[in-house]
């Protein structure tokens, strides 16, 4: 695992911090790690963005593929695009579940906002995802 992370440009010091935040990652198979990297690549993340996301959010590596796929599919259905930019700006979005994003948006729609405007607001201010 360490070799793959270092190949991404992640320093030893950052790897240690990643393990501190999410000790489970030491048990990750190489194939699991590569699978998580592949998901980001499939969403047009380049090497720098992949490095930024993984090094800042080790918990992403511990999430199940199905939960991540569900989140991404839901976000795309809701109208979010350029997910690589969104995740690079706020890597912690990837820790959310699909139902959390849906519930948050449903609540704002019930308050009278249009979906398109909500998605635009969240895309433009990735910090909003921290409120979920």
């Amino acid at each position: 695992m360490e070799k793959i992370l270092k190949d991404l440009g992640i320093s030893d010091s950052t790897i240690n911090q990643m393990v501190e935040i999410c000790p489970n990652i030491v048990e990750l198979d190489e194939s699991e790690l590569l699978r998580k990297i592949e998901i980001l690549k499939n969403n047009k993340c380049d090497d720098i963005q992949i490095r930024n996301i993984i090094s800042s959010n080790a918990e992403y590596l511990d999430r199940s593929v199905s939960d991540i796929d569900n989140l991404i599919n839901t976000m795309e259905e809701l109208g979010f695009d350029n997910l690589n930019l969104l995740f690079d700006g706020n890597p912690y979005i990837l820790n959310l579940d699909d139902f959390e994003v849906k519930n948050y948006i449903d609540e704002r729609e019930q308050n009278g906002e249009e979906l398109e405007d909500i998605v635009d607001d969240m895309s433009s201010n990735p910090y909003i995802f921290e409120e979920i």
Binding site: G9, I10, S11, S13, T14, Q17, M18, I21, I48, R51, N52, S55, S56, N57, N90, P91, Y92, Y127, E130
Partner: peptide
Amino acid sequence: HLPTIFGYSTENLKQ
């Protein structure tokens, strides 16, 4: 103002 900075890696912050 942005507590999540504590989670950002050095590499990410530097860039």
